[in-house]
Each structure stands twice: as structure tokens, then as C-alpha cells.
């Protein structure tokens, strides 16, 4: 982490917890309950966020919510041009997605290219009756016609800026920063 970069906290641990709580409620509303609901986290931090949201829904609704992990590396549209080949994470989908309501969960929505790749990849696992998108931070800057259904926090950012999401499971604490 470069020490001299200018860092603003967008969400601290408590704000992030409140945002996730609200997102869990909205996801359940969006799906009209929890039947057929599957949460799919995008590697890396989307996986942890999907796990959190699924647990919150389970607590509120008293049902099991299946969740999976999706690594979109092999579906990226810039694989030809990225320097060293990116490390590929685990893909693990717990159920056949056909006729399920799949909710893609990611930490940050920016260009939309990751989501495009995820949509293509999910199509190779079955035919969900519906796919929705749930993100902790929508930072604008879309390059594709893609929008989120559930958003934790919206923030306007420029191309020189970065949104960094840290989660307790991987980083030791929960926090979202805007880094210039």
C-alpha cells in the first residue's frame, strides 16, 4: 500500500455493516423471498460479501441460501493484452443454475466489464430464470450498458482514482477507501 497516496474513508466498519444489512433486505425483496435464490460472489472480495449477505438473509428469513464463487479471469476481454497472466481463483457453483434467481455479488462496479464476463460465464452453467447484480460500491465510469439492482453506496470517481474494499476475512478489518 503506497503510504503517500491520498486516502478517504467511504465506509468504515459500522457503515459497511449497515450497508450490507440493507443490501440483504433488498436482495430478499428483489427475489420476492428466498425460493430459488442463489448468491454468486465474484472472486476475490465478492465471494466474502456474498457469504455475509447470504448469512444475513438466512438470519432474517430462517432459510438456507445457497452461494457460490465465480472467477471470471478466463472470460475477460483483455486476456490478450494483460502482461503476466492473472492468477485464476476458484469457481464453485453449488447448484444447477437453471431456473434459479442468480444474484451476482461484487465489491465494486466500475466499467462493467467484469459483470459482462460473469454473465457470459454463468450462461455456461445453465439458464437462470433471472440474473441480478448486487454491489457494495457503484463508482460510475461504465463502459458497457450494465447497471446494479442493489447498491451499498454510490460514489462519483475519476479514472485516476481507485476504490479499495477491505473485508475482515481477508484484510483483518472492514473498510472502503477512495484512493487518489
Amino acid at each position: 500500500m503506497p503510504p503517500k497516496s491520498d486516502r478517504t474513508i467511504l465506509l468504515d466498519a459500522r457503515a459497511m455493516s449497515r450497508a450490507l444489512q440493507r443490501m440483504a433486505v433488498e436482495v430478499a425483496e428483489l427475489a420476492h423471498g428466498t425460493a430459488d435464490l442463489v448468491l454468486i460472489g465474484i472472486q476475490r472480495r465478492g465471494v466474502e460479501l456474498a457469504e455475509r449477505i447470504a448469512k444475513l438473509i438466512e438470519k432474517d428469513e430462517g432459510v438456507d441460501v445457497p452461494r457460490g464463487a465465480l472467477d471470471i479471469t478466463l472470460y475477460r476481454d483483455d486476456l490478450e493484452t494483460v502482461g503476466p497472466k492473472p492468477v485464476i481463483g476458484e469457481t464453485r457453483l453449488p447448484v444447477d443454475l437453471t431456473d434459479k434467481h442468480a444474484v451476482i455479488v461484487d465489491d465494486v462496479l466500475y466499467t462493467g466489464r467484469t459483470v459482462r464476463a460473469a454473465l457470459d460465464e454463468l450462461a455456461d452453467f445453465g439458464r437462470p430464470k433471472r440474473i441480478s447484480l448486487c454491489v457494495l460500491v457503484d463508482r460510475g465510469g461504465r463502459e458497457l450498458p450494465i447497471q446494479a439492482d442493489v447498491i451499498g453506496q454510490t460514489v462519483k470517481t475519476g479514472p485516476g482514482e481507485r476504490v479499495e474494499v477491505q473485508v475482515d476475512e481477508l484484510d483483518g478489518h472492514d473498510q472502503v477507501d477512495l484512493v487518489r
Binding site: I72, D78, V82, R113, T114, E143, P159
Partner: peptide, 10 residues
Amino acid sequence: AAKRGGGGAE
């Protein structure tokens, strides 16, 4: 070149 042009997956 791609980096200069912006874009790429987040």
C-alpha cells in the same frame, strides 16, 4: 496501450 486507453476490468 490498453492501460493508456483506460478500461480493463476492475
